[in-house]
Each structure stands twice: as structure tokens, then as C-alpha cells.
């Protein structure tokens, strides 16, 4: 079942967009636009999407599905992509699916036979590390999205049974030295031009999810960013709770909504 699918991601400074025909495991890219748009994704994303659709002679109503990058990345950046995708999918009445931004980056290395470490910039001195095994045109994710200090992420990879051999991701811009030091000459840094997600990579990650039966139900309301962190206010609150006697009470992972609160963060 071949579906005309539009994908975009604004979690990083790259505005990544592609249109393609997708069926499980297979992507035929029709048109793509990957632009460097620091702090401008809100103004650039949809005009570029409109221009891309028009150039491909596709009306929005022709689309069968929308795919959006969920991050992790800049919180506001991710929300621009996710909110735009929600509006578009909702109005068109087509399903909306999310894929990890880091999965889209990994797809740029799918043609290699390597262990890939993607290091996303989490700001505030932290990174989003993710390991992938790339081979035979595919990428297998080895751990879920998370956030950590560069030093501990690098150390964990360095002491793994199989350390990554190639590194990519915008987190290397600030923290490359930490990873270079921990992993030594065994790990090569990919060219900087390959550190960002692409629209094509989003479509491929989605097609792989389809093949593996990993996609959600397409409900535009249910697709939410992957933050990996609570808001600062909640982090402070949790740290304070941890510092006081009953530390275990406030512990725990980030709820799906990324907001702790009454009824487990449900609105």
C-alpha cells in the first residue's frame, strides 16, 4: 500500500522536509528541502512545505499521511514542527505519525556497516545520546532516547562491549572533545554536513517503523514531542524533593506528557 507522505522536522536548526511515496520498508522520495534555518523554523517551515508541494504538483488534499520529527532537540523547535503537523493532519483528516529526530539522522548512515553514535545537542551542557547498528541499508536502534552529561554518555559508550565507530550529531559541536577523548581513534567523526536530520531520513525511519509495526494509531492529538526532561521548574522541584528526606517519592521517569502533575499529567 503506497502512500503519499509528507515528513518534516524542526527539532534542530535544520528545517528538514520531504515528500515521498512510502510503503513498509520502502521509500520513493519525490521532493525534498533541507534548509539551515536557525531560529526561523516557524517562519520558514510551512511556506517551504507549500512551495515543495506546488513544485511536485501535489495539493495538500492529495496527501495520505504526515510524519513529524518528535525530537529530542530544542523544546520550542520540536513544538513548532509538531504543532504545524497537528494542524495540517487535523485539517486534512489524515493520520499523523511521529519518529525520533535521532532516527532520521541515523538513516544517513544506513548504507554503511557500522555502529553509530548520534549525539544530539540538549543544551545546558547536556546531550541526547543514541546508539544505532547500521547495516544493509537499515538502522537498528539500540537504546531509547535519553538525556545525559556528555562525560557519562561518552564513558558509557567507551566501556560498552562494542563502542560506536562513527559519531554524528549537533551535540558534537560543543562536546566533541569529550567523545574524542573517551572513545579514542576507534571512533571517526562523520563530516559535519551529515550531523543533521533530513526529510528523506524521516521518511526512511517511518517506513522502517511501518515495516516493524511500530507506528501509532495516527491520532494527531496523541502525537507529542519527546522531551526526555521535565521543565526547569519541575526539575528544581524534584531536586529539592530528592534532597529532602524521602528522596524516592519524587523519583521516576518523565511521564509521557513531559509534565508531572495531577492525574499523572493528563489535562
Amino acid at each position: 500500500m503506497n502512500q503519499l507522505t509528507l515528513a518534516f522536522d524542526t527539532a534542530t536548526e535544520e528545517c528538514a522536509i520531504a515528500l515521498g511515496m512510502v510503503e513498509p520498508g520502502v521509500v520513493g522520495v519525490i521532493a525534498e528541502r533541507d534548509l539551515d534555518a536557525p531560529r526561523a523554523s516557524l517562519t520558514r517551515l510551512l511556506p517551504t512545505v507549500a512551495e515543495l508541494l506546488e513544485s511536485a504538483n501535489v495539493a495538500p488534499g492529495d496527501l495520505d499521511a504526515i510524519v513529524v520529527g518528535l525530537g529530542p532537540g530544542s523544546f520550542t523547535g520540536v513544538r513548532i514542527g509538531v504543532s504545524s503537523a497537528k494542524g495540517l493532519a487535523h485539517a486534512l483528516g489524515v493520520p499523523l505519525y511521529g519518529v525520533s529526530t535521532l532516527d532520521a539522522i541515523a538513516r544517513r548512515f544506513a548504507h554503511l556497516d557500522v555502529l553509530l553514535g548520534v549525539v544530539g545537542d540538549a543544551m545546558r551542557g547536556e546531550v541526547y545520546p543514541a546508539l544505532f547498528r547500521c547495516a544493509n541499508g537499515g538502522c537498528e536502534r539500540l537504546a531509547p532516547d535519553t538525556v545525559s552529561r556528555p562525560l557519562s554518555a561518552a564513558a558509557a559508550w567507551a566501556t560498552a562491549d562494542e563502542p560506536p565507530t562513527i559519531l554524528a550529531g549537533n551535540g558534537l559541536r560543543k562536546h566533541g572533545d569529550v567523545f574524542r577523548e573517551a572513545l579514542g581513534p576507534g571512533a571517526t567523526f562523520a563530516a559535519e554536513g551529515l550531523w543533521t536530520p533530513t526529510g528523506r531520513g524521516l521518511l526512511r525511519a517511518y517506513a522502517d517503523d511501518l515495516a516493524a509495526g511500530r507506528v501509532g494509531d495516527g491520532d494527531a492529538g496523541a502525537v507529542l514531542p519527546v522531551y526526555t526532561r521535565l521543565s526547569d521548574a519541575e526539575e528544581t522541584e524534584r531536586d529539592r524533593a530528592n534532597a529532602t528526606a524521602d528522596a524516592s517519592a519524587a523519583q521516576g521517569s518523565v511521564p509521557d506528557s513531559g509534565v508531572a502533575g495531577p492525574e499523572g499529567g493528563a489535562l
Binding site: L46, P60, R79, S84, A85, K86, G87, H90, A91
Partner: peptide, 9 residues
Amino acid sequence: AYAKGVALG
């Protein structure tokens, strides 16, 4: 962002 998505759609 949401409203612009609806406008495009």
C-alpha cells in the same frame, strides 16, 4: 504553528 498548519491544509 497549529493554525498555520490548518490554513495550509
